[in-house]
């Protein structure tokens, strides 16, 4: 099918239909073909900075999240070469920040970790751990920022700017010193709120934006990526097995539990 508004794409030998004006990523998502990504998130303007969504379009490597669909597109995505690029990119992110999964409350729902699992990263990369020592900003009553876990995806910047209209976050510095800054001396002095889209669990792919008093809400085994591969929801067009959101747990009422030294009649035993 190739009328005025539609194009046919060939991705890894599979033919899919795309609308003109879509990006490669949008067309593939709609057709149930998952392209790994970290900096792209549904509802935010694509930025093309993490390059994990790199694919080969007619022999040239492009970022699928920013590349518009073109006619006669021949796309290579799940090839050994492209997946090697992706593995290298994700490995380097692990070495650039402090990604200590055993102590991180995002573990199990972390997109960086899930991407490493999907790409099969189990052996050491030949890079040193940079072990950054960036200050943690816990000034806000409801939110803490641990920049040491940041992968500079910029999703919080775009969510705050485009969805919340607040500009709480922005990039500061250049090169290896680039990091996320807030629009004041500390987060408490900005107009950031726990209800902002930028602070929701969908936005930060790692454990950098921490919602206070919500950590470890899902037990091991019931976390988002415990039972499913990242991207399964797109590949099968089915919702996630587990929710990303906190499930309200019924508060224990002490009245339901009589003191141990009382019997059923309330008499001391």
């Amino acid at each position: 099918m190739s009328d005025k508004d539609h194009l046919t794409l060939n991705i890894d030998g599979q033919k899919i239909t795309a609308k003109r004006g879509q990006t490669l990523m949008q067309a593939c998502d709609a057709a149930g073909v998952y392209i790994p990504r970290l900096c792209d998130s549904e509802g935010l303007e694509p930025q093309g900075s993490c390059r994990v969504c790199s694919v080969k379009l007619n022999g040239r490597v492009v970022a699928a999240c920013t590349q518009p669909v073109v006619a006669n597109a021949h796309i290579e995505s799940e090839t050994e070469e492209i997946n090697r690029y992706r593995k290298d990119l994700v490995s380097m992110l692990f070495h650039e920040g402090n990604h200590l999964c055993p102590i991180c409350e995002a573990s199990g729902r972390c997109e960086l970790q899930a991407m490493a699992y999907r790409l099969g990263i189990s052996q050491a990369a030949p890079h040193p751990y940079l072990e950054p020592v960036r200050p943690v900003d816990a000034s806000h009553p409801d939110i803490a920022l641990d920049n040491n876990r940041c992968i500079l995806c910029g999703r919080c910047i775009r969510a705050s700017r485009d969805v919340d209209g607040k500009h709480v976050f922005e990039y500061i510095g250049r090169g290896i010193h680039k990091r996320i800054g807030v629009n004041a001396d500390c987060l408490a002095e900005t107009d950031a709120s726990i209800d902002d889209h930028a602070m929701s669990l969908e936005v930060c792919p790692v454990g950098c934006i921490i919602r206070k008093r919500e950590g470890f809400f899902a037990p091991v085994g019931e976390r988002l990526y415990d039972t499913e591969v990242i991207g399964r929801d797109i590949e099968t067009q089915q919702p996630h097995h587990h929710s990303l959101h906190k499930i309200e747990v019924k508060q224990i009422d002490p009245a339901d539990f009589p003191p141990f030294n009382k019997d059923d009649n309330g008499d001391t035993v």
Binding site: N98, H99, L100, P102, I103, A124, Y129, E131, V133, V136
Partner: peptide, 15 residues
């Protein structure tokens, strides 16, 4: 053994 684990948290003592 791979990346320091819990003990490596002391490397991040700042200021």
């Amino acid at each position: 053994a791979i990346m320091g684990g819990l003990p490596v948290m002391r490397n991040a003592i700042m200021h």
